[in-house]
Design a protein around this nucleic acid. Sequence first.
DNA 1: CATCTCCGTAAGTCATGACTTACCGTAAGT
DNA 2: ACTTACGGTAAGTCATGACTTACGGAGATG
Lengths: 111, 111
Amino acid sequence: MTYGDAIDATFHALGDPTRRALLDRLRTGPLPVCDLAADLPISRPAVSQHLRVLSEAGLLLVTPQGTRRLYSIAPDGIAALRTYLDTVWDDALAGFAAAAHAQAAKAARKE
Amino acid sequence: MTYGDAIDATFHALGDPTRRALLDRLRTGPLPVCDLAADLPISRPAVSQHLRVLSEAGLLLVTPQGTRRLYSIAPDGIAALRTYLDTVWDDALAGFAAAAHAQAAKAARKE
DNA sequence: CATCTCCGTAAGTCATGACTTACCGTAAGT
DNA sequence: ACTTACGGTAAGTCATGACTTACGGAGATG
């Protein structure tokens, strides 16, 4: 029924637009918290909380550098997401094709 | 900055575990609402509301059949998701590789 | 037509979670 | 050692949204 709590946390983390904005911002490379907060209309602690959620979901990595903490996208997290989506995708396509087939057969029988 | 409200609605819809359970349930093929509600510990109206959210996010298709309404996964919705993830994925991998490279170069310089 | 099943909508309740300010560590610079 | 920048945590507020029950409409069945 569930693909595990990991995927669960991942999708929950991605559900928030601000967190996706953070991910987008990190696409070009690692950044410290202050830089991330400067681009967003929310307070720095709020950013910290979002980063925490993303990290616990396995989507971010942290590398302390002096007094700063550089956040970067975790390839493993994205990989898990893609794996999940690929599964849903394949099954859905197969199911869709089968349904379309059945539908076409039924229509052909009817007309 | 945003990939559009469509992707926004899609991720929001996927953020709820019950809705992902509905998607999982529909992977094998279209089902009417009563069947979907039977598998979940929530009321049927709650299921209807989730189905509405998923439909508006472009993730589900509806095909009325008499008094029933068959819900099925919308391939286009999943496709949009994959496209978005592919973009994030590619950029992140490139950024990660670049960062790792810089890190390795710095480490080599230091030692 | 009467009835029954299927299902969407409305209204209201309640939990979750996204923000705020205030505070406290930790590391670098003087 | 003192100060300053960075950033995580705590506590509290407030909006969002996930559920409930009650209701109404639309199609099948007698």
